Amino acid sequence: MRRSLLFVWGLALGGCAWEPGQGFAVVEPSVRVAYAPLSSRAASDGYQRLSSDYQVRLDSASMRLSGIELLASASGSGSGGTFDPARPPPGYSLCHGGHCHRDDGALIPYEQIAAEMGGGGGSSAVVTLATEGPLDLLAPETRALGCSPECALPQTQVSQGRWSVAALRLVGTVRDSRVPARFQGERAFVLELPTGTTTDAPVAILTGAVDLPSDRTTPPEAKLHLDLVLTAALFDPVDWGALVKDDRIEFDNNARTALVERLSQLKPQAEVSRGE
């Protein structure tokens, strides 16, 4: 009788920690995206030096996210092949710059495609995080994220976050620090991605590591802070002199592609703190 009472009491205590349907972890997500000037690149008048000896200053910058997927390794045998960027697997094309173009327009990193082709069966989305409206990169704030379908996670190990960048708008000026200069004075620019097309494909896909176990061995409450930092290095591959049109900069397809590729190489950071 005593053993039975102790057993029932133990079940009651367990129910206080994990209510039915609560999930193995309940995530409280937030995000912050910023453009950060670097002291090592600092020039006068708020400009940042580029590897090309051009200098850039941003006057406004914003990003809109269509979603951040939290991914866990999926079971499965995969195709068993070896990933070769020169011969992308079915569903992919044009592999370059560390990623391939998927048929739906997404840019998928090499390592994710290799995992899908290997023994792990790739990754699957556990939950999608979303925020409304654009994020101001020059006045960054930590913003709460919504969860779909819900913030209660199943039993799993979240190992990656996949960010879908829906839009990016950067406004600023560029100048040349070489003597003699490749062009004189400052030139204003406005970079808007996408370029007014009707496609729903993201501008870029970014992936970063996340260590978020959802199980019975860790406290169920989990605060997840996601952080992305852009720097002037984003502009390093651009040949600004080739884009000068009268008193302004006009981006061509090559410059846009170079910027998207550099953006896609950024690695978002994730910090997880658990309840006691």
Rank of each mutant, 00 (worst) to 15 (best):
L234N: 00
R143Q: 04
G91M: 05
H96N: 09
T195F: 11
R102G: 04
E271S: 10
H225V: 09
E116Y: 13
P219G: 04
L138G: 00
Q48N: 09
S159D: 08
Y110G: 00
V190F: 07
V31G: 04
V165D: 02
G118R: 15
A270G: 04
L234K: 01
R102N: 02
F24G: 02
V244H: 06
T217D: 10
T198F: 14
D239I: 03
V244W: 10
N253V: 11
G91Q: 08
G21H: 09
T131S: 15
P180V: 05
E28W: 14
G67E: 04
A36T: 14
V56I: 15
A201I: 07
D176Y: 09
D247E: 09
R49H: 10
T199E: 11
W18Q: 07
S79Y: 12
I205P: 01
W9Y: 06
P37F: 08
G76N: 04
S273A: 15
G185A: 07
T217R: 13
P268W: 08
L191H: 02
V165T: 03
R41T: 08
V56F: 12
R178W: 07
L226T: 02
I205T: 15
H101S: 07
S60W: 05
L263I: 11
G80S: 02
S4N: 04
E132G: 13
G122Q: 01
A209F: 10
L259M: 13
D136E: 06
A209P: 07
G46C: 13
E141N: 08
V31I: 15
S75Y: 10
C95M: 08
D103N: 13
M63E: 03
P268K: 06
Q269H: 10
A125F: 09
L168C: 04
D200M: 11
P88L: 11
R274N: 00
L191I: 01
V260T: 12
T217P: 01
L168S: 03
L129W: 05
F183K: 05
L137F: 05
G14S: 13
P154T: 01
A201G: 00
H225R: 15
G21C: 08
R274P: 01
Q155Y: 12
D136S: 07
S4R: 12
T199W: 07
S159W: 12
P154Y: 08
S164T: 11
A74T: 14
D247A: 11
D84M: 07
P37V: 06
F235A: 00
G146P: 03
R32I: 13
R274V: 01
F183E: 04
V27T: 13
L58A: 01
G161M: 14
W9L: 10
E250V: 06
T195L: 12
A43H: 10
G121M: 07
G10A: 15
S4C: 07
L94W: 10
D136M: 03
P154D: 00
S51R: 13
G46T: 03
L138Q: 01
D236V: 10
T218W: 05
G81N: 11
N254I: 14
S60L: 09
F251P: 00
G21A: 14
P219C: 06
S52F: 04
R175E: 01
R41L: 12
L38E: 14
R87A: 06
Q184I: 09
V165G: 03
L170E: 00
P180D: 02
N254K: 15
Q112S: 08
S79M: 05
R3E: 11
S124W: 08
I108C: 02
A74M: 11
